[in-house]
Amino acid sequence: MRILVQEAPFDVGAELNAFQADKTDMGAVVTFSGLVRDLPEAPLRHMLIEHYPGMTERALTKIAEDACARWSLGDVLVIHRYGQMAPGDQIMMVATASPHRKDAFAAADFLMDYLKSRAPFWKKEVTADGSDWVAAKDEDEEALRQWQQGS
């Protein structure tokens, strides 16, 4: 398991290749890659991501451990950036490796749902009109309830 919280950009391709290397007993690797999305209403100048050093690493490790307890996983990678980013920039990625495809997909989906509302990151969007903190959505909490019901 590898959890990285960093300001610096990273190369998804290189990270994926390194993650896949020497995994002779894993038949499936699923990756999710998250990018800064421009806004339809007003062009985004940049996005600022704030986090809680210490708690962030702790929360991400717990989420990854929960995924490992729930599915048959050989490895998990989570990289999440903080600081200032432009539209199209890489924010984060997760990768899961499993002997089987379904476990790899489900675990990646679970990691993303929990990471979104249980890891202490906050996004602020800065446009020509000003800046706003991104609000959490009700459906984010609903997604967690689905996992808790064991779907």
Partner: peptide
């Protein structure tokens, strides 16, 4: 620590 609901990902 006090903060608003988290918005990672």
């Amino acid at each position: 620590a006090f903060f608003p609901p988290m918005t990672g990902g």
